[in-house]
């Protein structure tokens, strides 16, 4: 079966001449539809660079990234913008919500940019607000709600256009432990009930334990891979900690 997303020998170099830094060095992997993949690694291991390459925010120096049959490394900037709008959803550590818009309007804008009938746009927005449990704060501005609520809004915005892939960069980085747990449960729910494909970068073993598979990056290479399978989350969490202890843990960025 053809993989949903296929990363083939991707490389990303920064700098020129003798000062070249290999942020990502010939990395290859596949992601299946409906998979929840996590990426872990120490500071400077290249995990955020890899996410940016998948997110089309950054361009690869070499290699290919296929979404189905589409090679995004061959698309022009304008085509990439269309691709992003139609295929990707983003959740970031600092939420990236528009501060002049209310919670509802942040979700509405993502839908409005796609176009569509007014009634459909509003119905879809209402559904997402209900699904993420933030309908009661729909009229509040981001500064008026908690970090967890902001992140759930970011999730709703990321999911509202049925993207092929949700990209999450340290989504629990700015949250307290309770909010982080609620968010990861939300991710799991979206993954199982909405069949959302999620690619998450994290340094937090607890958050990573909710993933189905984890790629461990070191110096731009995948050096280890863990698959949860049917294991309990607590057991998987222990396995993650074991891998991290072998590599000397994860340094916070």
């Amino acid at each position: 079966m053809e993989p949903y997303i296929s990363v083939c020998d991707i490389e990303k170099y920064y700098g020129i001449g003798a000062n070249v830094t290999k942020a990502v060095d010939r990395v290859s992997f596949n992601v299946a539809q409906g998979e929840f993949v996590g990426v872990m690694g120490a500071s400077g291991s290249g995990k955020t660079t890899l996410l940016n390459l998948l997110a089309t925010i950054d361009r690869a120096t070499a290699g290919h990234i296929f979404y189905g049959k589409t090679d995004i490394t061959a698309l022009s900037d304008d085509m990439l913008a269309d691709f992003r709008r139609e295929n990707l959803g983003f959740v970031f550590q600092d939420y990236n919500l528009l501060d002049t818009l209310t919670i509802e309007e942040n979700i509405l804008l993502a839908l409005a940019l796609q176009g569509g009938r007014r009634q459909d746009v509003q119905r879809r927005c209402d559904e997402m607000l209900a699904l993420l449990g933030i309908a009661d704060i729909r009229d509040k501005f981001p500064y008026q709600v908690s970090g967890g609520q902001k992140q759930r809004c970011a999730c709703a915005r990321a999911l509202v256009n049925h993207p092929k892939l949700i990209l999450a960069d340290e989504p629990t980085g700015a949250l307290d432990s309770h909010s982080a747990q609620v968010l990861m449960e939300t991710f799991t729910q979206l993954n199982s009930s909405e069949n959302a494909t999620i690619f998450m970068v994290t340094h937090d073993a607890f958050s990573a334990s909710y993933c189905g598979r984890i790629l461990f990056l070191k110096d731009g290479n995948i050096f280890h891979e863990l698959v949860r399978g049917k294991k309990e989350r607590k057991l998987f969490f222990q396995e993650i900690l074991d891998v991290l202890s072998l590599t000397g843990g994860v340094h916070y960025e």
Binding site: D77, D78, R84, F90, N96, L97, L98
Partner: peptide
Amino acid sequence: KYRFRYDVLRKLGLNTAQ
């Protein structure tokens, strides 16, 4: 100060011309 707003819009799929 608020250039992140336009960064977010790009992530939401707006191209440079837009």
